[in-house]
């Protein structure tokens, strides 16, 4: 990550726009207690936390720059969504779908765009509307399966 992904200016811009970055070396004894508390098992191990230290999103494994940006944006969007900051979450999901529509994170963005709009306004038809878009745009994704109960006869 330090050699390929993190040096890229768009990656830096994405991270600093939404978060304070903090990094820990898992080979150092001084980090052992913290990593035990985080139930750390594999690297790179990424967590999105709010200012109180509550973990709101996580992923692990190497991702090249476009995939990392899209995944990180989905993380920040879900962190906003869990805090019921619907407008902020929606803006980020739309950004992922606009700029990173071919990434592995994009189906998640479309799934949760529907959830975000539904949570903001339960009377709207945005949940089913966005999930219909999901079936059309990402028919083989895991997130299509997650809404597949809506496809039952």
């Amino acid at each position: 990550m330090d050699a390929v992904t993190y040096p890229q200016p768009p990656v830096v811009a994405t991270v600093v726009a939404h978060a304070v970055p903090v990094q820990f070396d898992n080979s150092k004894a001084e980090n052992k207690e913290l990593l035990s508390r985080l139930h750390h098992i594999w690297t790179p191990d990424l967590r999105v936390m709010d200012g109180s230290g509550s973990e709101l999103y996580r992923w692990d494994g190497f991702l090249p720059p476009p995939e990392f940006i899209a995944r990180a944006l989905c993380g920040f969007a879900q962190a906003h969504l869990r805090r019921r900051e619907f407008e902020k979450a929606e803006a980020i999901y739309v950004d992922v779908l606009t700029r990173f529509s071919t990434t592995y994170a994009a189906p998640e963005a479309l799934y949760y765009l529907g959830v975000t709009r539904y949570r903001r306004d339960p009377q709207s038809d945005e949940l089913l509307s966005q999930w219909a878009n999901l079936r059309s745009r990402y028919p083989t994704s895991e997130y299509r399966v997650k809404q597949s109960f809506k496809e039952l006869p």
Partner: peptide, 30 residues
């Protein structure tokens, strides 16, 4: 390059001050 902090409590405090999240990255130097 990303300017990483290395103190979680200090990062959480800064996040509260700047109304941002904290992005934690645990890495292995090998």
């Amino acid at each position: 390059m990303i300017e990483w902090m290395h103190d979680l409590d200090a990062a959480l405090k800064r996040a509260r001050e700047e109304s941002k999240f904290v992005l934690v990255d645990v890495f292995n130097p090998g």
